[in-house]
Simulated assay, not measured.
Amino acid sequence: MAKKTVDEMSFLDHLEDLRWHLIRATLGVVVAATLAFIFKKFIFDVIIFGPTVMTFPTYQWLCQASEFLGMTDTTFCAEKLPFIIQNRTVAGQFSAHIWTSIYAGFIISFPYVLYQLWSFISPGLKPNERKNSRGFLVVASLLFFIGVLFGYYIITPLSLNFLANYQISEQIQNEFDVSSVIAIVRSSAIASGFVFELPIIIYFLTKVGLVTPKILKQYRKFALVIVLIVSAIITPPDIASQVIVAIPILILYQISIYISAIVVKNQSRKSSRANKN
């Protein structure tokens, strides 16, 4: 039996098609999560707990930078971070293993998940729209992975270093629960991955007419305030850390303005050509 075209498909047919795309995307995550589960030692000892030791590359760079600038703060040059990681529940380590594998599976399989969603959406686009969006999967996946790396190598070590060295009393020793440490690494990486999708989001919002370059420029000051607030929430409360996080987000916002302007310009050309014909 021949496959129905998009115009011939009913609402229930579309739901059925979406269901199968979601099933395939879920299977992709499960396969990647299974691999992450198997390579437990690498996932935890190298990746998750990497930012908890002072040999982590970010601490080395920040130590060299602080020494070059003659800063007296030696927190980035210490031998080790002043905390230990503990498990306080019976099933804590097993639960951490399962959930970390699932999140790792999602990150690894993100391009495939995106491909499944795109395969569902793209048949409803016009041929020229599909042609113009040809590099969508590559660009969106690349931005996501860059964001994940930024969250992992910048936000995570800055947060851990600050929180580990923060004290309200010398009588209190830091004994962090394993789930708390994993949550910082996970949330920093995944949240940054989605934040770096901003240019893609702006591209599609501009295509459907919800956003224009004029609006983005008009609200640039408000965007700056929001970015600084977000930076203050997800990083330690010191100016240097907030600036380090805020700069790439502001650059992404500026790139989004240029992308929006290009989309509007192309749409204007097409409408003028259509009017001439």
Rank of each mutant, 00 (worst) to 15 (best):
D177M: 11
V178G: 03
T74P: 03
V113N: 02
A240K: 10
A140E: 00
K80W: 15
S66L: 01
A32N: 01
G92S: 08
T89G: 14
R130W: 00
I202D: 11
V30L: 11
S231L: 09
L250H: 10
Q60G: 11
L114N: 15
L35I: 11
F68N: 00
G135E: 12
Q93V: 14
E79D: 13
Y166H: 13
G28H: 00
V31F: 06
R19C: 11
Q218V: 08
A32G: 05
T89H: 12
Y203I: 04
D7W: 01
L205N: 11
P213E: 02
L18C: 15
S180N: 14
T100V: 14
G28E: 00
T58C: 01
G135A: 10
D17F: 01
I251A: 11
Y152V: 07
K221D: 04
Q267Y: 01
S119N: 03
Y258E: 15
V211M: 03
L69V: 10
V90H: 14
L216C: 07
V113L: 07
I200N: 04
M71L: 13
V230F: 09
K276G: 03
Y166V: 14
S101A: 08
V46L: 09
T156I: 08
V185L: 02
G70Q: 00
Y258R: 14
I38C: 00
D45K: 13
D177K: 11
F120S: 13
F56V: 10
L143T: 12
F106E: 09
F120M: 02
V30N: 04
V208N: 05
N266T: 10
A36I: 08
G105E: 02
A261D: 13
K265A: 05
F136I: 06
Y166I: 12
D7T: 09
L27C: 10
V139C: 02
N266S: 13
S231C: 03
W118A: 12
F76E: 03
L114W: 03
L27M: 10
F162D: 00
A32R: 01
P57V: 12
I85G: 06
I108M: 09
S169Q: 08
F110E: 06
K126W: 10
L252W: 06
Y115C: 13
S241I: 08
V46A: 09
G151I: 01
N277E: 07
A2P: 06
I84E: 11
C63L: 02
T58W: 04
I233F: 05
L117S: 08
F37Q: 05
E16H: 13
L114V: 09
F222C: 15
I107K: 03
N132R: 14
A240H: 04
I43K: 02
V178E: 05
M71W: 08
E129G: 14
I85W: 10
N132A: 12
L15F: 08
V90G: 05
I247K: 07
F194I: 15
Q86M: 14
V29L: 02
M54D: 03
I172E: 10
L22G: 12
Y152P: 00
Y103W: 07
I257N: 00
L228P: 00
A183P: 07
P82Q: 09
I102F: 06
P213F: 02
I154C: 15
Q116M: 03
S256A: 06
I251C: 11
N128L: 04
S10Y: 06
N275D: 13
T34K: 09
S159W: 05
F194Q: 09
A240W: 05
